[in-house]
Design a protein around this nucleic acid. Structure first.
Lengths: 352, 352
DNA sequence: TTGAAAGCGCTACCAT
DNA sequence: ATGGTAGCGCTTTCAA
């Protein structure tokens, strides 16, 4: 394992000084063209590469930013990462991506590691376990800019990019109500999650707006997952006064609910409407395709990086950007013929 | 933007030498406890952090590895990345993840960037465009270990981790044949892709094994995508002698084919069987759930890192590891009642 | 146009 | 137990 070639090596071989070699490679004006030529040739031949640590040691800016996510393999995060990456590369930055695995302790470690790397800034989405944010505060001491996205903390001290959880849930619920649904089931994740609280708020708000009585039995908040979606929907369909629509907070919940409705022998959307926060690319996987609230992950990533870069460049302004979700109505939430006037005399044959 | 605190700063403030401070912080035996105490207290107070560049400059091993993937947001890659990450962290390594966006030029740049970072090693999955691998050869000049995974190159010179494309396709095809299918459609991506070639090979091999005549019309290799799966399946079902089963090389192709079968008014698996290379978590999204060949992404990631670490530690052995896919039989490929005894008097019952 | 030298922050070796 | 010093590879003065 031999040592990489250094400027010194080149200088010695050429019998000139290190400074000259350095300047020649930088194409400095104060070096003769002949010398430049000679140096470049040898550098290429010897496969010289500048040592980035020496450069960083001098400049103290490695052009790296750190990204902390709860989980890399989830599409939502990986697509945001991808967008951040693209934006970063465009500005000459590299990214170090670390995962907290939804764990407070690991997240703490991640922050430490990134500080030790002297990243120029950090983009973070906090883990589900995190309620204390002091491990992020050390970044302020180190003068390392921090921007949160999606799940945020320290909102008075750092910029953030979030989605419109309240509004999107409200919009989705309103959409169902406008199409004649009266008993909308809300199927979410654990109650303590911010995202669940906010969306529930939007859901309830829509019900109030439309003067629909609120029924606690229609709200099921447990965990996220296919089976849980199936169970929740099954239960809501078995009520004396059953649900005629569902708003599901995740993709797996939505597909679980889909299955439950079908297994019950009910039709979508004729008997039960379904809408969920799911990925565009999966909406067509079933028939009818699912109406979906979709996150604009590319926007989230791009905006987050933009805010961070601003801070890196010295801005101290604290900004909060909201990236709205997009509602795409597909077959699962709207009856084919028209709105909702045909409750009784059904003419539509079993579709599919 | 003030300069971070250095050892020198601490030393001056305490009126001792830099060496002493350095030793005290390393808990060296040759420093008095009183001094250690004093130094540590001040370090904490001043929020001292060792400068990683200075350390790396000295040691020349930043404990970073680079990962090059064609696309971060695809579950297959992100889950492999996640596994690599976990393995790396466990060994005290950090990872830099870069994406080639399936582009040769960007990939070339990625390699350059990682070299410039002096990563200790690189794990790479080449882009679809890449057919020339000389940009990877420079790594050998720089003594930077390189291990390919999934899509490989330079196989005589570097270790790699691949999946059993031929065998898995053969197994999947055999599974369909054993269940009485005769006209299995092969729906793949672009013909020039290695993965397509290999799997087609496995498919054809299975047909030969079972003495089923090969029909070129049943092989459709275009692009990957939901619509393309839909089209391909529609076409194969419209043949004079139509398909009675499909092997789809990707998730989107499989779901597209699923839709096509249904739209044609055919039943799955009674009329047409379906099997595909899809993610476990999505297999249940439809009814019947999809039989699937699944990649063991965790294994791929873990093994890749292991091989790389070995090389970093000095091994020059070139290894090739094959991580098999796993066949999980679900409703889409096997008729409920029994295998296929109605077709002909075969004795093998449906295996599962 | 070129060279010499200082210094970035740290470790490690040789003194004391 | 502590201090001094060299040197990692590079950039950037200042001198020649």
């Amino acid at each position: 394992m031999k040592r990489p070639v250094s400027l010194k090596d080149l200088a010695e071989e050429l019998g000139v000084s290190i400074s000259t070699v350095s300047r020649a490679l930088k194409n400095s004006g104060e070096v003769s063209d002949a010398m430049k030529e000679k140096v470049r040739k040898l550098a290429k031949e010897k496969k010289y590469r500048p040592n980035p640590f020496a450069v960083s040691l001098l400049k103290n800016s490695p052009r790296i930013i750190g990204i902390i996510v709860p989980d890399i393999a989830t599409y939502y995060y990986s697509s945001i990462i991808s967008a951040i990456n693209q934006a970063a590369v465009k500005e000459g930055y590299s990214t170090i991506i670390v995962s907290s695995d939804e764990t407070y302790e690991i997240e703490k470690q991640c922050v430490e590691n990134l500080i030790n790397f002297r990243v120029e800034g950090i983009l973070a989405c906090v883990s589900q376990q995190t309620s204390d944010f002091s491990h992020f505060e050390v970044l302020f001491d180190q003068n390392i800019p921090l921007v949160f996205f999606d799940r945020v903390g320290l909102s008075e001290k750092s910029s953030c990019v979030i989605t419109d959880n309240v509004e999107s849930a409200q919009t989705a619920t309103a959409h169902l109500l406008e199409n004649g649904r009266k008993r909308i089931g809300f199927i979410g994740g654990a109650n303590h999650l911010n995202i669940v609280k906010l969306r529930k708020h939007g859901y309830l708000q829509a019900l109030r707006d439309y003067k629909i009585p609120i029924d606690k039995d229609l709200v099921v908040c447990k965990e996220i997952g296919y089976e849980l979606g199936y169970e929740a929907a099954s239960r809501l369909l078995a009520l004396a006064n059953p649900s005629d629509a569902f708003l599901c907070l995740s993709e797996s919940l939505a597909f679980g609910a889909f299955k439950a409705i079908r297994d019950k022998g009910l039709r979508i959307p004729d008997d039960v409407a379904l809408i969920g926060y799911i990925d565009e690319i999966h909406a067509d996987y079933v028939s009818p395709p699912l109406s979906a609230m979709t996150h604009q992950t590319a926007q989230i990533g791009k905006t987050s990086f933009k805010l961070l870069l601003k801070q890196i460049k010295g801005s101290t302004e604290i900004e909060k950007k909201i990236i709205p979700c997009i509602l795409t109505v597909r077959g699962s939430s709207v009856k084919k013929a028209a709105g909702n006037q045909l409750e009784a005399p059904k003419t539509t044959p079993a579709q599919e």
